[in-house]
Write a protein that binds this DNA or RNA. Structure first.
Lengths: 221, 221
DNA sequence: TTGTCTAACTTTGTATACAATCTGACCAGA
DNA sequence: TCTGGTCAGATTGTATACAAAGTTAGACAA
């Protein structure tokens, strides 16, 4: 594995997980030696993260982990609306029924998963990831898929700030099930609308929780 | 200006303009010395172009200018649909009327421009660019704008392959005018639909012309 | 003649040294 | 006291040397 890939993966993981908090200074000498690569591949990794929007480059002054604001979250959902509704439409037109029939069954069974504690919830998240993968495979559009991937990385980071209350997850599972049904029916418009609904509800929930998180950290500080 | 920026701009320009044809090998030593920077900043530029999708990295085997296929064009329009319709909706909600009133006047006058030969057509293209800028400024969403920018770069490259027949440009101007009117009315749904129509017609025209171009090059080869 | 192995060469990937730029503090002068 | 400038330190940006990996051509054997 290339050193630059290693640096990228380590940093990406630390940023998404929150180990590197927003605003953290990413000095090249310090960070590259910490990760165990030289500055050249480290800078390569840094540039990729800047392109991803996970790191902010301050020209001449170095790089810091990008901050998360409510405005950012709102903007991200606006992009998701554009990309994911289109992805849902295309998936409905091009899907392999087999795959989505399986996912349908799994999402129907998701209730037990979500109610069975943290381990089950982790499985539910990976189920959601498999749904995303199925959509990606169906749309067969590398530009769209790569844009979706980037957006999902940002979402993963934001989700880390939010409580995962089972109530919302159950709702989310039901909403996703509607999308799957539309895709299975080959109903592009319905798939897009169901996606819209899902995003709307998701945004409501996430926004409230992120807001909560912000006010908490303010209290601490 | 940083050497890596210089290398990026030079390469970007040469790729979009077609001076570097699709498939052209981009050896680091050769190209970096040609441009007049060392390999380190050159590689940085190369990585940005790879992230943009304008250069294909063949692992271990170097990098080549990305090819253009009809499939690519179709995929690009699928992404544009998602992004630009969303951008049109947001622009309609957030626009500064002043700017779009001016653009409206200019697009009304575009007929004369287009019919006045190549110089006028160049001005018409820059008018279109100003329309894009106005939309970008209105949506106030950095993620969306940066995605749009990338897509437009690809489109600029594809347009280079197409004949710009005045008939189509006149149509295009009328379609854009409809979008502007919808934005001025603050009618998000109409702006999105007008954008959809515009993209549909644009794709028809571009696809036909790119296809033509392909069959010509085949004859030559 | 064909297939395979080897070896040289070419090219990418990494480390490090060096140059340029920015930061911030301290001091001088108004 | 405040402003401006300069200087030291730290940090980013660039160049180059070195290492590693891959490709290709040629020779030799089957």
């Amino acid at each position: 594995m290339r050193a630059s890939d290693k640096a990228y993966r380590v940093l990406l993981n630390e940023i998404v997980s929150g180990d590197l908090a927003p605003g953290t200074d990413l000095g090249e000498v310090e960070q590259s030696s910490r990760i165990g690569v030289s500055r050249t591949p480290f800078r390569e990794a840094l540039n990729r993260l800047i392109a991803d929007g996970l790191v902010d480059a301050q020209p001449g002054r170095g790089a810091v982990v990008a901050s998360i604001t409510l405005e950012n979250v709102a903007q991200l959902y606006e992009v998701r609306e554009g990309l994911e509704e289109q992805a849902a439409r295309l998936a409905a037109q091009r899907r392999d029924p087999e795959i989505f029939l399986n996912l349908q069954q799994e999402f129907i069974a998701a209730k037990q998963l979500i109610e069975s504690g943290n381990a089950g919830i982790a499985v539910f998240y990976s189920l959601n990831a498999r749904f995303d993968d199925a959509v990606d495979a169906s749309v067969q559009n590398e530009y769209l898929v790569s844009a979706l991937r980037n957006v999902r990385t940002h979402m993963a980071r934001i989700r880390r700030m939010a409580e995962h209350n089972p109530e919302r997850l159950l709702e989310s599972a039901r909403e996703t099930l509607l999308i799957i049904e539309a895709i299975l029916d080959g109903d592009a418009a319905l798939a897009a609308h169901a996606t819209h609904v899902h995003l709307h509800k998701s945004q409501q929930s996430i926004t409230a929780e992120v807001q909560e998180q912000f006010s908490q950290t303010k209290e601490v500080a």
